[in-house]
Design a protein around this nucleic acid. Structure first.
Lengths: 345, 345
DNA sequence: TTGAAAGCGGTACCAA
DNA sequence: TTGGTACCGCTTTCAA
């Protein structure tokens, strides 16, 4: 193992000078710098972050607690992708700042968090981002003795903790406003379970959009069509019933808003099985903009993007660019209008 | 910051004894242990892995180089999921061994690897797993002075580097054998680009299955139907042409094997747009078992699972359970038979 | 602009 | 079963 001392000896300077070259701080003569850099190169020197961290109390590590990895496999409802996108945003910012992600995964168990935070504390992370699997309030363990700054992404904890959340209201509102502007008057809304905070915001947006346009609200068009459940068959059955109920109304809705893209995918199949064409007979919209689905479906799916990557970015910035006090940021996401929605004349 | 010395003083023992309690090595009296543990608890002591790493040359960190995070967003073809599943498998094993993942992301650029490996070296990782985005040979930078053991997952580098790869041949072979056993005689094969190693193995499997069953190979049924390209429209057009060509053959194929589930998803839409029912008129199979697609499609998709999670597990084991010499492991994946394939009588 | 010495928080080695 | 002491590799502090 080549150390900074070896480099110093080889370059004929003191250890401190090597340290200065390494960190680009203090003043170093050009000739000195060159000879030191040459020595580092020649010896294949790699600085030890452990030693640096020990002395300077800065690890260069940002801890992340998420279920990004485990959810992907276990939870088809949420599919884990939101968290991955959030990680992506976090990486965007940390790469710039030359910080490295120390990743811990909850394995889908919320009670894993205390242990993971402890692991991060041992590694003396410079800060922690707690990523919630979906928009919700999370319960954080009491701050330990070694508490680096912490930010919650895609959720929030308490008034003393900074947080970044998606703007579910605006997304749904812009979507429904847009459908109305395209001539739709009977717009069905297949909701996710009410337990989800997102559903509450979106339902309010759906209702407000109708009110703003002077359209009546038909309870028969607002149906909970998914369940928080791992049983794929039960969930399909729930959706089947919702579709059947919808198609029994009169006149038929001209558009269906789905709680997410995954549901929209299933709805495509079910509508077609009943001989309905998309978008000629009925328009369909999703939510999430999982490009894997939205761009691949035929016709391509109109959907609301959730700004996960931006949420991750904002969270990382909040953490690494010390602000004054606690902040809460709400990030809006755009609607992508694609061929699954038609204009009614 | 509470240190081990504080704990020692508080418990009235030597630092070394606290260290022993912490690591559960050397012999410690029950009473001593209890008082030390009480002191740690009372003071809220959190050990510093930096200090430990410095002295013992073990960081408790396993470095991972992958594009898992960035690919998810950027590359609809591969969709990043394989790498996420591999990470999941890695986590499975590392959690057990109380090791933490130091995650670096290539951002989709293969030339990022040297820098990332250097970052990992600075943190003195105990080992590194290099995750390839798809089954391929990867070019590793020359080992630096500080080279911890390295394993490649989902690809391979050279004869001196251990590696774990998927068994593409067997997966496709079992699928086609199964289709033949179900009475299919004209089986179309919509391939991924030949540049992919996976395609080469799978094509051989498709051909071998036909030979083994004494069936003729019809070149008109073997069509490259995707491209390594980010242009979604161009890729859709390529697939449209392939489908058109297929449906112009006579007699029509009774089954279509798709290069991946994503392609199968698109094929569902295209076949239906032409009035064909699945599986009554034509059976469809995918590859990958992206449950998000395979379980949600209606009817559910028959597909070959790629054993990504197991690949990750094997890679992590290879790294953390020192074997003798370099090893290369090939992991098979099962076929999931679902409703998109029917038996022909 | 450069250097000497101390010390960050643990563990290894040897002694008691 | 326990303690003393050196020391891992770097940065900090102070001095030259």
């Amino acid at each position: 193992m080549v150390t900074l001392y070896d480099v110093a000896k080889s370059a004929g300077v003191s250890p401190k000078t090597v340290s200065r070259v390494l960190n680009g701080d203090g003043p170093v003569g050009k000739a000195t710098r060159d000879s030191v850099e040459a020595a580092m190169q020649a010896l294949g020197y790699v600085p030890s972050s452990a030693a640096r961290a020990l002395r300077s109390a800065k690890s260069g590590l940002i801890g992340v607690v998420s279920g990004a990895i485990s959810y992907t496999d276990d939870n088809p409802l949420l599919a884990g992708l939101p968290e991955i996108y959030i990680l992506r945003g976090i990486q965007d910012v940390l790469d710039e700042k030359r910080l490295t992600v120390l990743l811990t995964d909850t394995g889908g168990r919320a009670d894993a968090a205390p242990g993971l935070l402890n692991t991060l504390a041992r590694h003396r992370v410079d800060g922690t981002i707690y990523v919630a699997p979906f928009h919700q309030q999370v319960a954080l363990p009491p701050p330990t003795a070694v508490s680096a700054p912490l930010v919650v992404a895609n959720g929030f904890a308490d008034d003393a903790t900074s947080a970044v959340v998606p703007d579910d209201y605006t997304g749904q509102r812009v979507l429904v406003d847009g459908l109305i502007a395209r001539g739709h008057r009977r717009i069905a809304y297949l909701q996710l379970p009410h337990a989800l905070l997102a559903t509450q915001h979106r339902t309010r947006a759906y209702e407000d959009a109708h009110r703003a346009a002077g359209l009546p609200l038909d309870p028969g068009l607002m149906i909970v069509a998914d369940r928080v459940d791992d049983d794929a068959e039960a969930r399909t059955a729930t959706l089947q019933h919702a579709i059947a109920a919808l198609l029994a109304t009169s006149p038929l809705p001209t558009a269906i808003c789905c709680g997410n893209d995954r549901m929209a995918l299933a709805v495509y199949g079910m509508l077609r099985a009943r001989g309905l064409r998309i978008p000629d007979d009925i328009s369909v919209a999703g939510y999430d903009d999982y490009r894997l689905i939205s761009e691949t479906l035929y016709p391509a799916l109109t959907t609301v993007a959730l700004p996960y990557r931006e949420i991750g970015r904002q969270a990382a910035r909040l953490l690494t660019e010390p602000q004054s006090g606690t902040r809460r940021i709400t990030v809006p996401g755009p609607v992508h209008w694609r061929d699954s929605v038609t204009t009614i004349t």
